[in-house]
Amino acid sequence: MVNTRVTLCGIELDNPVIPASGTFGYGYEFAELYDINCLGTFSFKGTTREPRFGNPTPRIAECTAGMINAVGLQNPGVEAVIREELPRLGKAFRKPVMANVSGFSVEDYAFTCALLDREEQVGWLEVNVSCPNVHGGGMSFGTDPASAAEVTRAVKAVTKKPVILKLSPNVTDIAAIARACEDAGADGISLINTLLGMRIDPRTRRPVIANVMGGFSGPAIFPVALRMVYQVSKAVSVPVVGMGGVASAEDVIEMMMAGASAVEVGAQNLVDPFASKKIVEALPAAMEKYGVTSLEEIIGTAH
């Protein structure tokens, strides 16, 4: 009998598998297919202060072992999320959920987090300072240690819930940004958001994505993500949530050995709606295969 339980910022999870924000909606599309309570938790669609339509289409492009998206944080705004989405989410999912928040100013982040702080089902705030698809916000806060720290402090001041900063890989030194967030009070770090990429359609000779560039995700980015999780978890003492190209229980185990306390599954949910459930179900056998009795004991063994 193996033990898949892990603790993330003081909250216990049945297993470390967490569908990533933007790949799982508010859970109910997936709840039509399976009981999503088998998941550790999930991170719901990135939420901003105001409603957003996002970028023009096409927003999606195929890549080798992955995809590019340039959705641009489409969401109904925090007030509608609280009024309409969370009550529905609560009917399908009974565990603490991770609220993913983005913004265009430090005040935006604080405003949105302050409202979500009052929601009982929200277990963690995952603060996205890494969206590559919006201008003048998102990633610009996550490419500079001082800005990332400022967002962290502003959010910490309005919530008692654990605050996890979600970082961009599109930086020179991700460990320095993680340390700045930790010093500013972050309770955890999650990484990586997507890698900035693009595709061109040779028939039209133009970019496939209307916004030209987008975020590259999928199994192709797993080695890059794993390397960064390793670097960041060596640099900070707060828990790290690893993500980027995770598609199997083996990937989860590798991420944890690199230093992750929990693992998010992103793009794979889009091509296989059962991916996260399959990973949860495959974990015990994968653990037995590698002689792991408790997942907590393998966190950071590669260090």
Binding site: T23, E29, F53, T57, I60, M67, N69, V71, L270, P273
Partner: peptide, 16 residues
Amino acid sequence: ERMGCGFGACMGCSMM
């Protein structure tokens, strides 16, 4: 429209 998932999860194919 170009789609990511085709079942409503990714918001890749939105239209106003």
